[in-house]
């Protein structure tokens, strides 16, 4: 299987008002397989959002190349318009602020915006819009105004707007960071569903460990370089290295992966402190290490 997106030695520097260059990316070489769900972690300023902007060709790298489906699409040269158009159709992007990516004042009109830009015939746009709204569970809000929706719902509308363009990969650029916990869960559920049911390649940029734990693979950025890359279990058990790049593994997550590493089975799928605690309590009860009547004792 060849990589769907591949980057080789990407470098990028921002120039500030005084003409001083600040390196944002310092040689990123990564490849993303089709259908893979990758989470990119990193503290602020680690270059992870710049990386997303390069993938979507909003920025052009100073050095290095990007290949989509084996074809060179971006290097330091100015790309031609049709290539940019093609890449943006195949690689969709959901941004951080749900308010600033919705164009129309009716939900379904907004979802139609992408397909309209692609020049798709009206009947097919209709079908795609309905399908996309179904996929994110927002069909019954098709005729509402986005300003009446919650943050999580708005973000799902934004996701629908991307799905309607039938992309093969979707980049979520900190799309959950402005949402409340329930909105975050709504969006994460949608992401997982798209990945599992439609096989859409997902690149999810976040600084929430809990979200990264749901991915197939975690890539950690620091100072414009990839410092860790592997399965969530491997990454989270290296708490010291993560702390060195200002990322803190939540204790429940760390504990879960440590236990898994020690060969404890039947652990909960998601790193939830409560579920973990209950599991340990049950285990201790089974071993007779706790008195049986101590049902409400904390594990």
């Amino acid at each position: 299987m060849s990589a769907f997106i591949e980057t080789r030695g990407l470098k990028f520097a921002y120039e500030d008002a005084d003409g001083v260059r600040h390196t944002a990316l310092d040689g990123i070489s990564l490849s993303f397989e089709r259908g893979e769900f990758t989470a990119i972690l990193g503290h602020n300023g680690s270059g992870k959002s710049t990386f997303a902007k390069l993938l979507n060709m909003i920025l052009i790298p100073d050095e290095g190349e990007i290949y989509v489906d084996g074809k060179l699409v971006s290097s330091h040269e100015e790309p031609d318009e049709d290539t940019v158009f093609e890449v943006r159709r195949r690689v969709g992007m959901v941004h951080q602020n749900p308010d600033n990516q919705i164009v129309a004042s009716v939900v379904e009109e907004d979802v139609a915006f992408g397909p309209e830009n692609l020049g798709i015939p009206p009947e097919e746009i209709r079908a795609r819009v309905d399908g996309a709204l179904d996929a994110v569970g927002m069909r019954k809000y098709a005729l509402s105004s986005p300003s009446h929706l919650s943050g999580g719902q708005k973000q799902r509308v934004a996701v629908a707007g991307i799905i309607a363009m039938l992309p093969e990969c979707i980049i979520f650029d900190e799309s959950t960071s402005m949402l409340d916990p329930s909105g975050r869960r709504e969006v994460m559920d949608t992401i997982l569903k798209l990945n599992r049911e439609r096989g859409i390649t997902i690149i999810h940029i976040t600084h929430e460990m809990e979200e990264a734990a749901l991915a197939d693979r975690v890539v950690v950025f620091s100072e414009g370089r990839v410092c860790l890359d592997g399965k969530p279990g491997e990454i989270f058990s290296r708490a010291e290295e993560l702390r060195a790049v200002s990322l803190d593994v939540p204790q429940s997550t760390a504990l879960l992966y440590e236990l898994r590493g020690l060969g404890v089975r039947q652990l909960p799928e998601t790193p939830d402190a409560g579920a973990c605690a209950r599991h340990i309590r049950d285990e201790l009860l089974r071993l007779g290490a706790l008195p049986l009547h101590g049902g409400d004792a904390n594990g």
Binding site: N97, N100, Q101, V103, L118, G119, P122, V129
Partner: peptide, 23 residues
């Protein structure tokens, strides 16, 4: 600024070649 980037990401490039859902 953010909206402009989001619109570009959704393949917006002016009125040319654009269709409409509701004709």
């Amino acid at each position: 600024d953010e909206l402009a980037v989001a619109m570009e990401c959704r393949c917006y490039r002016g009125g040319e070649g654009r269709t409409r859902m509701k004709v």
